[in-house]
């Protein structure tokens, strides 16, 4: 089976500064893959590379076997990859309902249609309501997204990401800044919503990582130092030294 995501020897430099070097990563289809690493390791940059937000300086990225490096984000999204952002990135002046509905429109085939009444599309309405129900924001649907609480905005961020029905979901620190109870709820949500899909998640909370992930990759200074099952990662001395040890002090 071809890997959902395959990163081959990717390099990313910003000017003279090399942020990502010799990055190789493979995420199997249907796998829940966590990427961990210290602050500034390049986790978000890796997400930006995969999702087309930035182009690699060299190397190749494949989605389901097709080369996607160099494509624009919307082209990659249309091929079935959707990502969330570490810093909430929603449509602030539009309501919660509209935020999710916008994310549903392309996937339901309405594209740039300027001849259809958007309120008159049953499948769009149905799917929007389902997503809002999933992320527990149905009762807040008329509120402008900019006025939501922080935790609600994070949930909306996830909702927008999954609304298009992409097979590959990438979440960048979805639980950052959440309370313990909120985190638990969010993890249950992520587990349920990504059932049967491929998930790549960046997360600092180790209990979340080890509870959720099938496989874990450890990124340090723009390079993956280890990749394996949670047990393998826990037992890996290089990881303990470079990352987990640092966490423990």
């Amino acid at each position: 089976m071809t890997a959902a995501i395959e990163i081959l020897n990717v390099e990313k430099r910003f000017g003279n500064v090399g942020i990502i070097h010799g990055l190789n990563l493979s995420v199997a289809q249907g796998e829940r893959h966590a990427v961990i690493g210290p602050n500034g390791a390049g986790k978000s940059t890796t997400f930006n590379l995969i999702s087309g937000h930035i182009a690699p300086t060299s190397g190749e990225i494949r989605l389901n076997g097709d080369v996607i490096s160099g494509l624009r984000p919307f082209e990659i999204n249309r091929r079935g990859l959707s990502r969330s952002f570490q810093v909430t990135n929603v449509f602030a002046r539009m309501t919660v309902w509209e935020n999710v509905r916008c994310a549903v429109l392309w996937a339901t085939g309405h594209r740039y249609a300027f001849w259809k009444n958007v309120d008159d599309l049953p499948e769009v309405r149905q799917r929007t309501a389902e997503i809002l129900d999933d992320i527990n924001l149905l009762h807040r649907r008329e509120v402008p997204a900019g006025l939501l609480t922080y935790a609600e905005q994070r949930e909306l961020e996830i909702g927008i990401t999954i609304a298009g029905g992409a097979d590959v979901i990438m979440l960048d620190e979805p639980t950052a800044g959440m309370s313990h109870a909120e985190t638990e709820r969010a993890v249950a949500l992520i587990r349920r919503l990504t059932e049967g899909r491929t998930l790549v998640i960046v997360e600092h909370d180790m209990s979340v990582v080890f509870g959720l992930a099938d496989r874990i990759s450890v990124l340090v200074y723009g390079h993956i130092i280890a990749s394996g099952t949670p047990d393998e990662i826990r037992g890996n001395p290089k990881v303990r030294e470079a990352y987990l040890g640092e966490e423990a002090h």
Binding site: S82, E98, L105, R111, I160
Partner: peptide, 30 residues
Amino acid sequence: ALTRTPFGRICNAVRDNPERVEFIGYDPHV
């Protein structure tokens, strides 16, 4: 009526956040 179409709604999304629009399948340029 134009504001009430899929295109009209996406116009608002482009107004609010053109970057994110690219990640829900739309080309803000179009």
